[in-house]
Amino acid sequence: MFKRRIPLFILAFVGTLLIVSVFIPPMENLGEDFTLFFDIIAVFAFFLGGGNLVRIHFGKLRRRKKDWGFSIVTLVAFFFMLTIGLLKVSSVGGVWNIPLLGIGDPAAIAASPTTEGSWFQETFNYVINPLQSTMYALLAFFVASASYRAFRAKNREATLLLLAAFIILLGRTPFGMELTRWVPESFSVLQIPNMAIWIMNSPNLAGQRAILIGIGLGVVSMSLRLILGIERSYLGEDRG
């Protein structure tokens, strides 16, 4: 019984308190304090997350599950980053600094792990940075292929979408400006970059605002359901 009631009570109490604190000036600081509590709780979440990652991948390795080789890469990368980040390992001009182990300059313990020469920063610059950029750059190829297949004037709605995409794509390049440079300034709205801005500022704006208002109302109703204990799926229950 307590297993369910205590979390429900905590959520109802904190939720109500934080809503009330917005309307009562002396209680305004409560919001900040709870945010700091959240930060402290988040630290435990980091430990849990890290622990869980290690547990799952060690399990996979022990049982030689499919693609267990990738688990080795994950674990080696995880422990490597954790070690060099925690120990603040750095080497500048051939001089090693591992201040936590008493090697090199002890003052380096106060330095940011992202300073020049830090292994944490170097690994970021030369491994994580190019890997993530490469993954994102692949999007250009898939966008081109998807545009070729998807933007076909099969009906009225698709034609509108196609036209909007055409104007936006052109408007995001100097080529769009060059194409319509001849349009007199009094009709500048017909210049392609300005047409692209109009699409963003009018039809897009209307759609985006509708979505935002919908999300806002959804958040309010979901928060109320949580505070009132109607929504209990976060406790592992299937129905509210």
Partner: peptide
């Protein structure tokens, strides 16, 4: 790249 994508949209249509 945008010109190539636009050309492929035209070709697709």
């Amino acid at each position: 790249a945008h010109i190539v994508i636009l050309s492929f949209i035209v070709i697709g249509n």
